Amino acid sequence: MTDSTIRILIAEDQTLVRGALATLLNFEDDFEVVATAGDGIEALALAKVHRPHVVLVDVEMPHMSGLEVVEQLHQALPDCKAIVVTTFARPGYMQRAVKAGARGYLLKDAHVEELAGAIRRIVQGGRVMSPELMMAAMEHANPLSDREAQVLRLAANGMSTRQIAMDIALTEGTVRNYLSEAISKLNASSRQEAIKLAESQGWI
């Protein structure tokens, strides 16, 4: 390893994908995969130990989502660059990843050369986003406010209005108002329909 070697951590819950990514990236002369993780909590712990230059993270992982990992990495290790590599072609996920601090968002069907090039550009200070998702994000902007999305996300997890209110320190009436606004903005007929619509776009 030299001073110019890019140290990489891979967070991916599918063992075969995780192993294949590590093998392919280790073939690059200027890359070293220093650790791999199978869930979000493990990814954060290993990142704090190994302090990689780049963390590749999937969106949906056990214990902690990739988006939560990105946000916590951005706070705990601000010099570490997070790149989301996922199968989920949902513009809302990309918007949330960027807001959380991700420097890149690529789909898993990208060629390894594309991923390697993206890693190098991001380490040098750039950003790399899937062009297809950039177009989709512009066409389907998230109409929900942060609080509306938060309340709808908690409702999607099965929490009642009362439980949501207790969890985020709001009154039940305020929570109902946020839910009502979310349902209205999504042109949905019910809370359940609003949740489905928001999930389909990756907004929650």
Rank of each mutant, 00 (worst) to 15 (best):
R120E: 13
A136P: 10
Y178D: 10
A20K: 11
L67T: 14
Q192I: 07
H140S: 02
V59S: 01
Q124T: 11
A22H: 10
L9D: 11
K99I: 04
N177K: 13
G202M: 15
A136Q: 13
H140K: 08
V123M: 05
I122Y: 00
A45Q: 12
M166P: 08
R96K: 15
Q150S: 04
G40C: 09
E139A: 09
G125H: 05
Q150A: 01
H140D: 00
G158Q: 00
L44S: 13
Q192P: 12
A182F: 05
R127T: 15
G101S: 05
S4F: 12
T171F: 00
V69W: 15
A182I: 06
G173A: 07
G126Y: 05
I41Q: 15
A149S: 15
L197E: 08
V59Y: 03
K48M: 02
R191L: 14
V128P: 10
A182N: 02
V128A: 07
G38Y: 06
S184T: 14
G38E: 13
D30W: 14
M64F: 10
E181K: 14
A37G: 06
E113W: 06
P91S: 04
A89V: 02
I204Q: 04
L25W: 12
A194E: 05
A136T: 01
M159D: 12
H111R: 14
A116H: 07
Q124R: 05
I168D: 00
Q201C: 04
A47C: 03
M64S: 14
W203N: 01
G19R: 13
D146A: 02
A165V: 07
L144E: 01
N177Y: 09
I8K: 00
P131M: 06
V55R: 05
C80L: 04
A76I: 10
R121G: 10
M135D: 08
D3N: 02
S65I: 09
V55A: 05
D109Y: 11
L144Q: 03
K81Y: 06
V49W: 02
K99S: 04
A89M: 01
E71W: 14
